[in-house]
């Protein structure tokens, strides 16, 4: 795809959304039988499955901690989830994302309840249309709750970015999709522990002033409430009886 002349025109983004509008979001809980907890989250065409195993015996043994569990997220993309085939197995990008995802959960999950064990959170991108790490984080959060692992809070994330119109004016927008990720001027992944408001994940590449960042963040904070409510609704639905 060539760089489009604009990403925003007449109050609409390329997929028809307003600046503060989310893509259609779907959350399904309990999608993998064998896992302790699991969830699938869709943000538009981005679709990510997360599955939790553990607390369980931790290998290799030298990673065992006597006072708490080791939580590890393992992010990867299916080879056919993107336009050009992705080489199977985690590369440098996936290693980094797995690290920041793990870190986003470690202060929130009650790891001290499960000393000497490991908790593995597998995050597989089935289809990618940008915001995959944040979609994965939202799925992982639901999967951890579904697994019954005590947490101080749900972890909830949104992305935001900086896009341009046909006159070169720029705007902040939430929940970026592929053309905005690829051609926009900034891309921020942002997540909070909802109950406390602590920022547990923050990454950006691009070019923004402090004021632009703060404007995008404000929109993102509002969008986050929406995502959080969807997470809770999806979890409750699993336990509701007729």
């Amino acid at each position: 795809m060539e760089k489009p002349e604009y990403l925003f025109k007449n109050g609409k983004r390329l997929d028809g959304r307003k600046l503060d509008e989310f893509r259609k979001m779907k959350i399904k809980v309990d999608v993998i039988d064998n896992a302790e907890g699991s969830a699938e989250v869709e943000f538009g065409k981005t679709r990510v499955v997360a599955a939790v195993y553990g607390p369980r015996e931790l290998h290799p043994k030298h990673l065992v901690m006597s006072d708490r569990a080791l939580l590890r997220a393992h992010y990867d993309m299916l080879s056919f989830s993107v336009e050009d085939r992705k080489r199977p197995g985690p590369g440098r990008r996936e290693v980094e994302i797995s690290k920041v995802l793990s870190e986003a959960f470690r202060s929130v999950v009650a790891l001290d309840r499960f000393p000497r064990t490991g908790i593995d959170v597998f995050v597989k991108v089935v289809q990618a249309d940008a915001s995959t790490r944040i979609t994965g984080l939202n799925a992982a959060s639901v999967a951890l709750a579904h697994a019954g692992i005590p947490m101080r809070s749900m972890v909830t994330g949104v992305t935001f970015g900086k896009i341009y119109d046909d006159k070169g004016k720029t705007y902040m927008a939430v929940d970026v999709f592929k053309p905005e990720d690829q051609w926009g001027m900034a891309d921020v992944a942002y997540a909070k522990a909802w109950n406390t408001g602590e920022v547990v994940l923050l990454q950006m590449d691009g070019d923004v002033t402090k004021e632009e960042f703060m404007e995008g963040k404000k929109m993102a904070d509002k969008a986050m409430e929406y995502v959080y409510k969807e997470q809770v609704k999806a979890l409750k639905s699993v336990y509701e009886v007729e």
Binding site: K99, V100, E103, R106, S107, V188, A193, T196, G197, E198, V199, V200, L201, L202, Q203, M204, D205, G206, D207, V208, T209, K210, F213, M214, K217
Partner: peptide, 26 residues
């Protein structure tokens, strides 16, 4: 670069508050 923010990376198992982040920007 030139008074603008071009990259961000949060690391570590803990977190920051909104106010702390804004303070770090300044």
């Amino acid at each position: 670069r030139d008074g603008k923010i071009v990259a961000l990376q949060k690391g570590g198992n803990g977190s920051f508050t909104d106010e702390q982040i804004e303070g770090m920007f300044d």
